[in-house]
Design a protein around this nucleic acid. Sequence first.
DNA 1: TAAAATACGACCATATAAGTCCTAATTTTA
DNA 2: TAAAATTAGGACTTATATGGTCGTATTTTA
Lengths: 135, 135
Amino acid sequence: MFQLSKKIEYALIALRHMAMGHAGQIFTAKEIADKYHIPYDLLAKVMQKLAKKGYITSYQGLHGGYTLTRNPSELKVSAIINAIEEKQTVAIIQCEAESPENCIIHSTCTIKNPLVRLQTTINKMFDELTITEMV
Amino acid sequence: MFQLSKKIEYALIALRHMAMGHAGQIFTAKEIADKYHIPYDLLAKVMQKLAKKGYITSYQGLHGGYTLTRNPSELKVSAIINAIEEKQTVAIIQCEAESPENCIIHSTCTIKNPLVRLQTTINKMFDELTITEMV
DNA sequence: TAAAATACGACCATATAAGTCCTAATTTTA
DNA sequence: TAAAATTAGGACTTATATGGTCGTATTTTA
C-alpha cells in the first residue's frame, strides 16, 4: 500500500523526458521505452491515456509520436494519476471512497475524520507537484 | 493504491474500541469482531501482531483477552501500520523502497526527490496521528 | 476435564497490477 | 501503391497482494 503504480512511474518518467526536450519536440513511445528500459506495450498504453486526456498530443503514422500539449508547469501529478488510474485512487479510507452507507459504525465513527484530513493534505500535495519540479 | 488495508482498518477499529473502555479493561477478539461485523480470524491475527509488538497485552485461557498496554495517546498510527504490514509500506516510490541500485536513471533522476519529500510529509502525519484523535 | 480464549501456520479465493500479444488504422516515403 | 513506422486499443496471461478461512495447538479457569 501507499505506492505509486508502475504505470504512474512510467508516466512520470515519460513526461519528464519530454519536458527536457525542446518545445514541440516529437517523441515516440518506443524511443522512451528503450531509453529507460520499460516495457513498450505498457508505456504505449500509458501514453495513449495521457493523450486521450489531452496532456500530450499524438501524431499517427510514420514519424509520428507525441508532443507535450502544455507547459510542464501545468502538468500536475494529481492530474496524471487521475488520467491513468481508473478508480478513485487516493482514498485512504474505503468508506469514503466507495460505500459510506455500508459502514459498520456509521454515525458514531470517529476514525474517519482524522484520516480524511490526512487525505486532503495528500491530495493537495499531489496537486501542487508538477512535472517542472522533476526536470 | 493509496488505501489503508483492511487489516489496518480493523486494527484501528479495535484499538479505538479498547481506548473507549476503562483502563485495564479486557476485551476479546470475538467480542470486537461481533460488534463491528468483521471477520473473527482476521481480526484475531491482527490483534496477535499488535500484541507481539507490545501495543496490547494478551491474556490466554478462559476469560482471557487483550488490554491496551499504554495510553492511547502513545499509540501512533504509524506504529500500528508498521506492526501489521510486513513490507515497508508507506513508500510511494519503489526505487527508494527496495532497489535503488536497479534504478534505470540512477544518478540523473530528478523524479525521486520531490516524491521523497512528499513521502516524508506523509510519514510525519501518520506519526503525529494517535488513537486519541479517533475516540 | 471441559470450555473459552489466544497462537499460529497453512491454505484458498479473489482482486489488482504488470506485462504480453494481436490486429487495426494512420501517415509518410520510396 | 506498397512497405514501413507509428499510434490505438482490445484480449489475454501471469504475478503478486489482499482478504478471508481452516485446523490444530496451547493456555487458563472453573
